[in-house]
Simulated assay, not measured.
Amino acid sequence: MQERRTNRERSEGTTATLIAVARQLFVDRGYAETGTPDLVAAAGMTRGALYHHFADKRALFRAVVVAESRAVADAVERSAPGGHDPVADLVTGGEAYLDAMAEPGRSRLLLIEAPAVLGPADAAAIDAEHAGRTLREGIEAALAAGAIRPLPIAALVTLLGATFDRAALAVSEGMSRSDCAAVLAEVLNGLRS
């Protein structure tokens, strides 16, 4: 006998389906070229179902960006062992970031489309909750341990985050991942006290 799903389980399933379908369409076509009729057709749902779960296409896109950002942060957190060398942990986290951002379409979604569609402030706020948070925590740990020179944390997070993002874009455009990882490691190791 098949178990009946609760309304909450059905709602969560519908939301997850819409996010997964939207992600694929946004990657394949871009935000601007993806219409709500495309989204509901690909999901096999009605427009009513879409609007029941999301206010509009932009809200659905935001949910995709949050899910992608969360996936990147999860990958970074799984990679960093939290050992005795916080700088080595930052390097390992940076490599995990590059690997996570190599997921097809992810760099474009998070680094190009998100700021354009959601605005730079909202895109940055989402990042600050997820991948940016992991970088901030890693830098805070390195500063607290005296492993890196005492520099302003906001500037470190902003500038290192921009460096990681640019590396992810470069890799997505065909640059060698190992070259980018090697340079990032040198940058991080150059901060050692």
Score class of each variant (00 low, 15 high):
G13P: 07
E33P: 07
G30H: 03
V91P: 09
V157M: 00
A71L: 05
A121D: 15
I126A: 08
M101N: 08
A185E: 12
A71S: 13
A131W: 05
L60R: 02
S172F: 00
R47H: 12
L159A: 07
E113K: 02
R133W: 08
A131P: 12
P81A: 15
G48L: 04
T14R: 15
P86R: 01
T46V: 04
G190F: 03
L184A: 07
V65R: 00
R136K: 07
L18W: 03
L18H: 06
R8S: 13
R29Q: 11
Q24G: 15
R5G: 09
A41G: 12
V76G: 11
T34A: 06
R47S: 13
A41T: 13
A80Q: 11
L18I: 09
S172H: 09
A67V: 04
A142R: 02
A114I: 08
V65G: 05
D122P: 05
E77T: 13
G132L: 05
L50C: 01
G119M: 02
L160F: 11
A170Q: 10
G13A: 13
L25S: 06
K57A: 10
A75H: 09
V183C: 08
C180K: 13
A154W: 11
P115A: 15
S193R: 13
E12Y: 01
N7A: 15
D127E: 12
V21A: 07
S178T: 14
T134E: 14
A55R: 15
I112C: 10
L118S: 12
L118V: 10
A100D: 05
E137T: 14
A100H: 02
L98P: 02
A88W: 07
L184G: 08
G48T: 11
T15C: 09
L111G: 06
T34F: 05
R192F: 09
G105D: 11
A42R: 09
K57Y: 05
T34P: 08
R78G: 06
L191P: 08
G174L: 00
L110V: 01
R5W: 08
S193A: 15
P120E: 14
E129S: 14
S176T: 02
I126Q: 09
A102N: 10
G94E: 00
V117G: 12
G30M: 01
R106T: 09
R108D: 12
D127I: 00
V117F: 07
S193L: 07
Q24M: 07
A131Y: 06
A121V: 14
S107N: 01
A32T: 10
V183E: 11
V183M: 13
P37K: 02
Y31E: 06
I153D: 06
A131K: 01
A42Q: 04
A170E: 13
A43K: 05
D165H: 14
E129A: 14
L184N: 13
G132W: 07
H52D: 07
I153V: 15
T92S: 11
A16N: 08
A167F: 02
A41Y: 06
L191E: 03
T36W: 03
G82T: 03
M101Q: 11
T34W: 04
L109N: 10
E113T: 14
V21R: 04
D127Y: 11
D165T: 06
P81R: 11
A123S: 12
I148R: 03
M1K: 03
M45C: 08
L39A: 03
A123V: 01
G30C: 02
S79R: 13
V87I: 07
G93W: 03
G93I: 01
F61K: 00
R149N: 08
L169C: 05
D89N: 01
H52E: 08
